[in-house]
Amino acid sequence: MKITEIINILGCKVISGFDFIEDATIDAAFSSDLMSDVLTLDSSRVLLITGLCNLQAIRTAEMADIKCILFVRDKKPTEEMIALAVENDMVILQSSLSLFRVSGMLYQAGVQPVY
């Protein structure tokens, strides 16, 4: 699914990745606040949905080759987080909705789970 479709479904904000958002797509999504769990994923082109808004969320995405992160519950990424995301060509999205609600909406719209 295209990231632009996800933005339309959720009505979420784009924080970084404006240059490549038009072409960005994902094959599946994974919702977790536990970064070690994220690091077990073999899949590529995954959307990470998380309420964990700190530098380690971006670092984890970098190591796991995840190019798109959606922060829920209006958690605001810091300047350092955004800089690291930009350095790694990541799309960062922000939604006011909860992790459960966002996951449900995207699942209903046809986004595949990793497992």
């Binding site: 970064m35 070690s36 380690q56």
Partner: peptide
């Protein structure tokens, strides 16, 4: 744990 780690998966993840 606040950093998103500390669930006892680090060393098993490394080994894998």
């Amino acid at each position: 744990r606040e950093m998103g780690f500390g669930a006892g998966m680090g060393l098993p993840n490394i080994k894998r």
